[in-house]
Design a protein around this nucleic acid. Structure first.
Lengths: 346, 346
DNA sequence: CTTCAGTGTTGGAGCGCTCCAATTCGCACT
DNA sequence: AGTGCGAATTGGAGCGCTCCAACACTGAAG
């Protein structure tokens, strides 16, 4: 009942183990007849080559590790599919881990991948720069410009520009009192910067509320005080009697640095009696599946995550091949939906 | 610049390679002095043991593979954390893959894990039973009772009971016209069955709408016709003049077999002019982060995914140890939120 | 008929570990 | 001093592959 090895296959096919190995790595210099014999022996024995042995013996493992910053930010699903497309074409197997996957072993994912001798690493989302630097393998940072390390190219969308696009969109709709709900982290900081710059250029006063975390709840907690005392009835004309607070009038538009936070902002606004988009327009970021839900219909900014993933894969391939790979920054787009509208009472 | 091996560490620490190996696997029969010497040599050389070599040489790899059915169903995040807790305690490293992760290579994740010689496999969510059976390694199915294979225990919540709880909750709120939006897949079928049985027991007529897929859009498309011609103005008293359709009056409550679909149902209801929960109550399933968003506030059923994950880990450990492991079914709970309310006009 | 260059195919030498049997080292007890 | 015995330590034999240098063939050129 032993697991079949390359020798079993060789014997069955009447060839040498080396020839079997060549077939498995589909080398061009194997005669069609022998190739067929080997393949049928493989099928008959239900043989699966051991990646462990192959990796140990060979100069590379043909596998690459993907570290996902946060599984609950669905952004990564599309990005992964892009990585799959480009890296798969080159025959690489992907293996994913989140930042906390094996933390119980006191092992960060980069060490885990190092132990597996992956040929390269993709860091999707926020990651510690020191960790990147420490890892010996070729690496690419995907999705944020906030993490920099020497020799590690970045593939991301221009998040500052994304913040600008969001803000410009709101300004074009006639809004002046535009707030930004930001969060910790490099991406958020970039997006926020785009907002601040664009507001300043338009001669408007930027107002940033910084949430403690990057999720819905934190956003709600951060923005709620802004609505305090300003809310009214069932969302009709409630804004008319809004009390202005210390730093600015109750905003008529809010840019949240990611989609879950935007949903939190909408929740807080509704709770305070405002309706979206009639009273308050909201823009999110990432264009996640969340934004597409009919019930949410959130206008959102994003670099196409699939495109980014694909580009990151190509960059990593170049890096592994020894070509010096350069960072690539993509322009973000805006997906217009139902959470933003022209301001009615300017 | 070669990567250091166990021999380099041994030489530096002044011991044999075997002793280094013992320290790495923290064997109890190593003297404190030698252990310290080895560990400091490891640190000085920045040595990372090769899992490839270790797995190849040893009788097991101390790693287990987790196949996630669908990354966009956030349910898995908590389940993974439970797996981490129980499997991590035993020193297993987890490695995750989704069903499509390496499909470009024509490799399903189970083959990929087999190639990596994992010690065991957890199948989270729907998975093909044949695939499970084919895989040689000990396996556990997590999250659904729909997938059965000989020798593969199941750790799941009682989804039939979950369907019952949802339906009973709506009945207790005074609803009689209760519809169910179901979907393809084993889990959905079980949940639906709980609904049908409970309706029958209460003397109510069950009405199931089956969506083509398991997502928000499919749910919206499936339920929308039910509201057709029944919708009215801004959600006030709109239900009063509802036209009944062929199979039942416009429902006053809807049980959707998962959270994204419930969100779709709410979207469709709102689009038709109904308001939730004033006109229509909606119950979801999985209690995903989605349900917790303030803006959505969805009453939802779920087995504690973290608890399930932990139990699945324990079961897998038992299975690997050779103890015959049995399936475990947990009772689900209901998380009451704002999408359900007592019916006003009975 | 020999030489030469391919093309296909082969055995051997590791890759970096684990496991095992064998060995050495203490140290208490005759 | 001699014996015994468990505890600590060691070298050797693989694990299942890849890579490489060497090999047999074939057929064209000298």
């Amino acid at each position: 009942m032993r697991r079949p090895t390359i020798y079993d296959v060789a014997e069955r096919a009447g060839v040498s183990k080396s020839l079997v190995s060549l077939v498995l790595r589909d080398s061009p210099k194997v005669s069609a007849a022998k190739r067929a014999a080997v393949l049928s022996a493989v099928a008959e024995l239900d043989y699966t080559p051991s990646r462990l042995a192959a990796g140990l013996a060979g100069t590379r493992t043909r596998s690459i590790g993907v570290v996902i910053d946060d599984f609950s930010n669905l952004w990564f699903v599309e990005a992964l599919s892009g990585l799959r497309a480009s890296l798969g074409a080159e025959g690489y197997a992907l293996s994913v881990a989140d930042a906390r996957l094996n933390e119980h072993l006191g092992i960060d994912p980069l060490d885990a991948f190092r132990a597996l001798r992956v040929d390269g690493v993709v860091l999707a989302g926020e990651a510690s720069a020191s960790a990147v630097a420490r890892s010996g393998a070729p690496a690419v940072v995907l999705g944020t410009r906030g993490v920099t390390a020497p020799g590690v190219p970045i593939v991301a969308s221009d998040e500052v520009e994304g913040g600008r696009i969001a803000t410009r969109h709101l300004i074009e709709l006639g809004h002046c009192a535009i707030a930004c709900v930001s969060a910790p982290g490099a991406s958020a900081t970039e997006r926020e910067r785009g907002y601040v710059e664009t507001m300043a250029e338009a001669g408007l006063k930027p107002a940033v509320v910084r949430a403690k975390a990057t999720d819905e709840r934190a956003a709600r907690a951060a923005i709620a005080p802004t609505f305090e005392g300003a809310g009214a009835g069932a969302g009709t004309d409630s804004h008319a009697d809004a009390k202005s607070n210390e730093w600015m009038p109750v905003p008529t538009a809010i840019f949240a640095v990611n989609d879950p936070m935007a949903v939190g902002v909408i929740g807080a606004a509704q709770y305070a009696g405002f309706s979206v988009p009639a009273d308050i327009s909201v823009v999110g970021y990432d264009d996640s599946p969340l934004a597409e839900y009919d019930m949410i219909s959130l206008t959102s900014i994003s670099g196409d995550p699939r495109e980014l993933g694909e580009a990151a894969g190509e960059t990593l391939i170049a890096l592994i091949a020894g070509t010096s790979a350069e960072s690539r920054i993509f322009p973000p787009r805006i997906a217009l939906r139902g959470s933003t509208a022209v301001i009615l009472r300017p």
